[in-house]
């Protein structure tokens, strides 16, 4: 269980990394914390020709508060964001969800942007980005663009990032609204069977669910009570097209969407 051979590029500037991506496209992979990619390399599920290490680029290792937006650079490790003193005040939902991401021993290396780039449908950070309506900052040798979370995720471990692009940063709106997060996994730290986040909105609540569909899905609900809420959640649960696997059934996943969804909605809309 050893990786296949690859070249390893230690980028010293962002332009260098982008240039290698421009030349090698999908044969090259960015490695940041490597906490998802390395396991795939070891199992030879992934066999890139070149790895581009972007963790020596100080400009990517920054957390910036720009007005109402918190910009987290591609080099920011999950543990660093969790330890950021402003986190609880500015990004309460991230503060709730991050402790559920892997374990201390993987958060110490894994990056925030890396998790979002990996787009695992059960992962917490893509879910939170989706729930908060954040943006992904993409950059290639030719251009920069920002893509809204709802456009970024395209399916199971699939995003709209082009082969020559890397994620330079992600941004979250700094929000003061009420929010809540809940996750159910077989064991603590496992991939979520269902993870859900709720954020208060002007009209009601946005509920985002991970672990059920091929990607985290957010849905805005008006303020609903009683059976109307239950019906709306039931419809949402079915729309996510849940499936069976060794850890859970589709029905169980829908049950969790209905039950946790109701709890979370009540929590943010008291």
């Amino acid at each position: 269980m050893k990786p296949a051979a690859f070249d390893y590029v230690r980028a010293e500037t962002l332009d260098e990394a982008l240039e290698v991506l421009r030349q090698e496209g999908s044969d090259a992979r960015i490695i940041a914390g490597g906490q998802s990619l390395m396991a795939m390399l070891n199992m030879r599920l992934a066999r890139p020709r070149t790895l581009i290490d972007i963790m020596r680029l100080p400009e990517l290792a920054r957390i910036d508060a720009k007005g109402d937006t918190i910009v987290v650079g591609a080099g920011v490790r999950q543990a660093a964001l969790l330890a950021w003193p402003e986190l609880g005040r500015s990004l309460q939902l991230v503060a709730l969800a991050l402790p559920w991401t892997g374990h201390a021993q993987t958060r110490s290396r894994g990056t925030v942007c890396g998790s979002i780039a990996h787009a695992d449908p059960s992962a917490e950070l893509p879910l939170v980005l989706q729930a908060l309506g954040g943006e992904v900052h993409l950059r290639s040798a030719k251009r920069r663009r920002r893509v809204a979370a709802r456009e970024f995720f395209a399916g199971m471990m699939t995003t709209v990032r082009a082969e020559d692009e890397l994620i330079e940063a992600v941004s979250f709106p700094a929000a003061q609204q009420r929010c809540a997060f809940r996750e159910v996994a077989r064991r603590h730290g496992d991939f979520a069977i269902v993870a859900a986040a709720a954020v208060q909105t002007a009209a009601g609540v946005r509920l985002a669910v991970g672990g059920v569909a091929d990607m985290p899905v957010a849905r805005d609900f008006p303020r609903l009570e009683g059976s109307a809420l239950d019906e709306a959640l039931n419809a949402f649960a079915y729309e996510l097209d849940a499936r069976d696997d060794v850890h859970a059934t589709a029905r169980y996943r829908r049950d969790l969407v209905r039950l946790i969804g109701r709890d979370l909605v009540r929590e943010v809309l008291p």
């Binding site: 940041a32 998802s36 780039a117 395209a154 990032r161």
Partner: peptide, 17 residues
């Protein structure tokens, strides 16, 4: 299809680190 199908498929091999 059914809300979960994939958009922009030619970018299939994108994403991830």
């Amino acid at each position: 299809s059914r809300g979960s199908f994939v958009a922009k498929l030619r970018r299939l091999f994108g994403g991830g680190r």
